[in-house]
Design a protein around this nucleic acid. Structure first.
Length: 110
DNA sequence: CTCTTGACTGAGG
DNA sequence: GCCTCAGCCAAGA
């Protein structure tokens, strides 16, 4: 494909689709993989427009494993349920044992 | 053009 | 561990 033709938002969507089942990553990790380490906020901003797309936005959390974007889903606990259905343990809106399920595109995809 | 708004992050107290 | 502050950058008004 031609990354040059893709907008920053579209790149975020592409990376988000690469997240394996049962794994999660952070906004900063995606931004870093895109070469914009400082643009973690843009990743989250991009996910705001991921509604209606094939983007597993529920697998993207902040660096601490906190579900900061859960309010952007239909249900208040939809994001948590989606992650739990994939085998991820969540407590108090925060992913438990984050290191075990964390997936860094910059390292995993190399 | 300027200003505000964030689904963020790291450093410092 | 918690709270606060500053830097970051794209999009919309």
């Amino acid at each position: 494909m031609k990354p040059e033709t893709l907008n920053f938002f579209e790149r975020v969507y592409e990376v988000a689709r690469l997240i394996p089942y049962g794994r999660v990553t952070s906004y900063g990790a995606i931004a870093n993989y895109l070469g914009a380490k400082r643009s973690a906020r843009m990743v989250g901003y991009a996910m705001n427009g991921s509604s209606g797309k094939d983007v597993p936005a529920h697998r993207v959390v902040n660096r601490k494993g906190l579900l900061t974007g859960k309010h952007h889903f239909d249900g208040t606990n939809l994001m948590q349920q989606l992650l739990e259905s994939e085998g991820i343990t969540i407590e108090n809106n925060q992913i438990q044992n984050l290191e075990a399920v964390y997936w860094d595109p910059a390292k995993e995809l190399q």
